[in-house]
Design a protein around this nucleic acid. Structure first.
Lengths: 249, 249
DNA sequence: CGCGATTTTGAGAGCCGTCAAGATACGTGG
DNA sequence: CCACGTATCTTGACGGCTCTCAAAATCGCG
């Protein structure tokens, strides 16, 4: 694995995430503590592993820039993508609770992350209950995303699944400034989509074609344009719900 | 909905869960606080709704006895079972974080639960960081179970899925005393299994038949006997991992 | 004994997977 | 600037796993 350069260049008070509307405001004391908690920044290349399945990482991460994904694999290599990580998302909580991660995380684009030492998480619980609650908040949000994903893979048809992920990723990317207007820059191959949705590569490709023929979306290079939102939502059987400001670490 | 009788009859110090080996020990102060936190017990009948999708329940629950399940449904009625709840499991965390639950919970057997007021969860974070960490622990465990379930539904074949869910439920039930020896009392219809695994009822039935013909399991009434553990594990492509003592509230 | 819920079985259809091959894009070295 | 290898995308053909439809059998219960 390539050497990882970890050093603090960005004080938490100037964290780029603070400029985004979707995140909650923090008190000065909270930011001070987070700055103490922070070990540095880590930058990785596209395709780089961030944590390995069954590994035991001493670090926790908050994504500052870029996309990645969480996954699990079966012994024979079949892969299931569990979720995507974007700016503001927290990586590695499971390892502080169970010692080992039961899933892996891999970068899709170049990623910059904030690094925290896992063994100091406990002091966060003793000294900053508001931040402790934030950690629980983040875990609970992940749970909700997984619930929805499970419904998608278990009960939606192929075209519903594809429509749903696109809509879902579009909304998430919008909120953190990774999409603008109707355009979503998806740093993802069709194989990734297939592994996300429990479909084969070939069928994913043919389903995307239907969605293009439909006039729902257009795709060029790696960017998707949402042409007909209401039709996409209808096909996806998606139900909208408001999101208030959310925390991050 | 039937009237719900809530009153404290069991002090937390005599919580039946404390006798189970799988749970961690608590300090006197922790138990004292939990007893203050506790509002009472709630008993519901098989089939009763515990929380509804999109509802806003003011309560949190810890299961003391019985089985239930979490689920989500699509507008047209297709249902996905997300996970099962058994003694020691915590219900309703999402509602303290997002105001509304995005999933429902329903009882499979008669269930007894410990009831907590949602709005006092915050004082738990301020006064008992160890318990706060336990809440995070529980959320993180749920996340891990969902990860595994997603892999099952997304990437395992029908027979692998059925084998896996039986093995999984057997292990969980064993740890809390709901299974003994090789026998698992499953209070679940084949329709429930189908909705858990993303399969149709008919195909679930035929797949169970194969597993019986295999000599892996036998089924009579609602109890499943695991006849050949290693073959079941092999078919399920399950990977064992140790579990240390876990918390509950 | 009779009715509803659940389980079982068979038949046929279709959605989706696998296999295979060609097309396109992209980076690298000559 | 072109050649070439690798990764990704596309398309067609075919097979099969799983679905739907339908009906019979069994079970639970009043």
């Amino acid at each position: 694995m390539a050497a990882r350069d970890v050093s603090i260049r960005i004080p938490c008070s100037k964290c780029p995430l603070r400029d985004l509307e979707c995140f909650r405001d923090f008190t000065e004391k909270e930011v001070e503590f987070l700055h103490e908690f922070k070990q540095g920044e880590l930058t990785v290349n596209p395709g780089a592993p961030i944590v390995l399945e069954e590994s035991n990482s001493p670090h926790l991460y908050t994504v500052l820039e870029g996309w990645g994904f969480r996954y699990k694999t079966l012994p024979d290599g079949r892969r299931q993508i569990l979720n995507y990580v974007m700016p503001g998302d927290f990586i590695g909580l499971q390892s502080s609770v169970f010692e080992v991660m039961s899933h892996g995380v891999e970068a899709l684009t170049e990623m910059m992350m904030c690094v925290f030492p896992r063994d100091k998480l406990w002091t966060l619980y003793t000294r900053h209950p508001t931040l402790a609650f934030d950690v629980t908040w983040l875990a609970s949000r992940e749970e909700r995303l997984l619930d929805e994903h499970l419904l998608t893979v278990g009960r939606r048809t192929a075209i519903e699944r594809v429509a749903f992920v696109i809509w879902h990723l579009y909304k998430r990317a919008l909120s953190v400034g990774l999409a603008s207007g109707n355009r979503l820059d998806l740093p993802v191959t069709q194989q990734h989509l297939a592994d996300t949705l429990g479909l084969s590569l070939v069928h994913t490709n043919k389903t995307l074609k239907k969605l293009r023929a439909n006039g729902c979306i257009s795709v060029e290079e790696r960017t998707v344009e949402v042409l007909d939102k209401s039709k996409l939502i209808e096909i996806a059987q998606a139900q909208e719900h408001e999101e208030g400001p959310r925390p991050f670490l």
